[in-house]
Simulated assay, not measured.
Amino acid sequence: MIIKGSIAIVTGAASGLGAATAATLAGAGARIVAFDLNEAGAKATAEKLGGIGFGVDVSNAASVEGAVSEVVKSVGIPSILVNCAGIVHGERIVGREGPADLDAFARVINVNLIGTFNMMRVTATAMSRNEPSPSGERGVIINTASIAAFEGQIGQAAYAASKGGVASLTLPAARELSRHGVRVVSIAPGLFGTPMLMGLPDEVQESLAANTPFPKRLGDPAEYGRLAMHICENEMINGETIRIDGAVRLEPK
């Protein structure tokens, strides 16, 4: 994929991994379309990068269909999609107050897994109408899994299940979309310095960083963005979930 001149949709673009990825792709010459439930945040990211921003609920079919349709009309057909939108909820299955909140579990699955699929199905349909490159490539989709997909901790049932679903979705989606020249890859980040983690007390951040074999620090969102950029450029990367975690493996709790 030649990034320069490509249209790239990035979800969760108001902050964290999404904002960093949008900046990295913009630096490589992509036209950025920032999606986020936080419309003001999406527009702020887009304004910095010379792109456009939309308030989008990735878990809602009409919201995604409408936004992607508007992108195609106003900017053109995207050839890059990076799904970074996601939420976290921590709760034990059997807690002091009784069983886990089923609605909370469903909401995490709905945003993290169904939202990823929702963006994929609509954007891949648009990508299938792109003119193919000499190799036949029309697009690349990068989803965000997590190392919690493989070593989910106590209290992470909802989050781990949602990210495990994203990882499991990768290969069948890559196989199916290959006929359209669209690649599908997932990134499984470890402990990164996103707003969610940076809001924790300093001693907790230091403890998390100390558990990473090397480098002994939280990941920089820009490092995620650079991996996403390399995936876009290297068309032999397809159907795989790539860990970016400093060799950390999560303990049970």
Rank of each mutant, 00 (worst) to 15 (best):
A160F: 05
G29Y: 12
G16P: 15
N143D: 08
D57C: 04
F117V: 02
I231G: 01
A145T: 00
P201Y: 08
V185F: 05
N234Y: 05
V68S: 09
V68G: 09
V33K: 03
L49C: 03
I154P: 14
S128R: 07
S74C: 12
A8D: 07
S135I: 04
I242M: 11
G41R: 02
A42H: 00
R96K: 09
L200I: 04
A13V: 09
T241H: 06
R129E: 12
Y224I: 00
I2R: 13
S128Y: 08
I80C: 07
A28L: 10
E131G: 06
A228D: 03
G95S: 13
V64E: 11
K43W: 09
A157W: 08
N83S: 04
S135F: 08
G225H: 00
L227Q: 02
S6D: 15
G115D: 03
L227F: 11
E97R: 11
I154W: 12
Q153R: 15
L227S: 01
G239H: 06
A222K: 01
N83P: 04
R121V: 10
P132K: 07
G76A: 11
A174P: 10
L113K: 00
F214P: 04
S69W: 10
L102H: 10
E39D: 15
G16E: 09
K253P: 12
G164C: 03
V75D: 15
G51M: 14
A23I: 10
M196Q: 15
G139T: 02
S186G: 06
A23N: 13
N234T: 02
A20R: 00
S146I: 03
R179A: 14
A8S: 07
S162L: 03
S79E: 12
P172F: 10
E235C: 05
P189N: 08
A26Q: 06
I141F: 08
C84W: 10
D101T: 04
P189G: 08
N60G: 03
A46K: 01
N130K: 05
K253N: 15
S63T: 03
G139D: 05
A46V: 02
A13Q: 01
A161E: 07
S79H: 05
E203D: 15
K48I: 05
I77G: 13
S207C: 14
G18M: 09
K253L: 15
V88H: 10
I142F: 01
G136N: 09
E176L: 15
A160K: 01
T21W: 05
Y224T: 00
G190L: 09
I231R: 00
D245I: 01
I87H: 11
S128H: 08
N118G: 02
R226G: 01
I142E: 01
G5F: 14
I9F: 10
E240G: 05
C84I: 01
D101C: 11
G239P: 06
E233K: 02
G90Y: 12
A210F: 11
L169G: 04
G76Q: 12
T241S: 08
E235G: 06
G136I: 04
V184T: 00
A161T: 13
G16L: 07
I77P: 14
V88Y: 14
T116Q: 07
N112E: 09
V140A: 00
A40C: 09
G53M: 11
G115N: 05
G50T: 13
G199I: 07
R121P: 06
E91R: 00
H180L: 09
I147E: 15
G5E: 14
M1K: 00
